[in-house]
Nucleic acid binder design. Structure first.
Length: 355
DNA sequence: AAAACGTGGAA
DNA sequence: TTTCCAAGTTT
């Protein structure tokens, strides 16, 4: 019995798939690569404006490799998973230095570039070079888990291995570019997470989950865990010129590499805030003004952010623009790749007055 | 193997 | 309001 899976999918793609996304134009390995990295765990509609601006500023791998890292991060600000941006530039430098500015065309070499894993490498091979390679993103996982009624949560290695095997089986020799785009489109537009449009699905015949009317059971859901609650101080330090102090965050950890308001351990307590601030930053600070905090929810925990505003004597400018600290005016600060919640703090109308 | 890594939209 | 999860990879 011949496998009609790819054939039916390609037929559907020709009339119903997405043929007009920004990275489909002027297609080359660089544009495909950047789009694939941006699209990791990120929806298409979110990525599009970032992709356009990024390509305007960094039109090729050379431009990206040579750019200041702050420039790269600022173009990523608000997109999340900032390690992607740092890895992207590092990989660009590798491509320029080790591959003569041309992207390699093997799975192994692509995966050697930081930020490129199995699925992204395959996507680049298929999309940019038309080389047969199986992808397995969230869309494909959902389509295959349903089509073959594969039980369990894809986060489990055993489940993931079955999905990869099916992905490899179905990937055709011909038209891989359209096939990989098509199966993602099907997952995004027809085989959706909730209320899939099975009546207009080209793979309805043969779909095990549909045959049992159990599409909602696949893929299995992630076991839920309670999110830990964390607390932190965010200091708004302002000098007599109205400038605020920013610090560069360490490369690992949340908002890695971005500039943010200086953060202080909540263990200090509100009463020790001034002293702790002076001690940590080496400044003469005034009395802290506590501002009502807010809770920010991350993937794995809740963060209670407690802002505090301090006026800093302009005499204590010795640390200005040294190391990881920087005095900036508000309009300059917004262009430095500030993480979204902090940008929120700086720009929300009801909170702007704080600065 | 499991946790960490972000943000915005949908349910 | 809270949870889930979306074109995953790294540690």
């Amino acid at each position: 019995m011949p496998d009609r899976f790819a054939q039916k999918l390609l037929q559907w793609y020709d009339s119903h798939g997405r043929h007009d996304l920004p990275w489909h134009h002027n297609r080359n390995a660089y544009r495909v690569w950047v789009s694939e990295i941006m699209l990791q765990q990120t929806q298409v509609t979110t990525v599009i404006p970032y992709f356009e601006a990024f390509m305007e500023r960094f039109p090729d791998v050379q431009a990206l490799a040579e750019a200041p890292v702050d420039d790269v991060l600022s173009h990523w600000s608000g997109l999340g998973y900032y390690a992607r941006a740092r890895n992207l530039q590092k990989a660009a430098q590798t491509v320029v230095r080790d591959f003569g500015g041309e992207f390699p065309q093997t799975q192994e070499e692509l995966e050697s570039l930081t930020g490129i894993g199995r699925s992204t490498a395959a996507a680049i091979l298929a999309q940019a070079f038309g080389i047969r390679a199986a992808i397995l993103d969230g869309n494909v996982k959902r389509v295959l888990a349903r089509y073959h009624a594969i039980p369990g949560w894809p986060g489990q290695t055993a489940v993931l291995n079955q999905l990869w095997q099916r992905a490899e089986e179905h990937t055709p020799e011909q038209r891989v570019r359209n096939y990989t785009q098509g199966i993602m489109d099907l997952g995004a537009m027809v085989c959706t997470r909730s209320r899939p449009a099975c009546d207009s699905c080209p793979l309805q015949h043969g779909c095990q989950a549909y045959a049992r009317r159990e599409t909602s059971l696949y893929p299995g859901s992630k076991p839920r865990k309670a999110k830990p609650e964390k607390t932190t101080w965010m200091m708004i330090l302002q000098d007599s010129e109205g400038r605020i102090l920013l610090e560069r965050r360490p490369p690992s950890g949340v908002w890695g590499g971005l500039w943010s308001l200086p953060e202080l351990d909540p263990a200090y307590g509100a009463d020790e805030l001034q002293e702790a601030c002076e001690q940590n930053l080496g400044l003469d600070c005034g009395e802290p003004e506590l501002i009502s905090g807010f809770r920010h929810t991350f993937s794995h925990y809740h963060l209670h952010i407690q802002p505090a505003r301090l006026n800093v004597a302009s005499g204590s400018k010795s640390i200005a623009d040294q190391g990881h600290l920087k005095w900036l005016h508000r309009h300059e600060a917004l262009n430095l790749g500030l993480p979204a919640p902090i940008r929120l703090l700086l720009t929300k109308p009801e909170q702007t007055a704080l600065l």
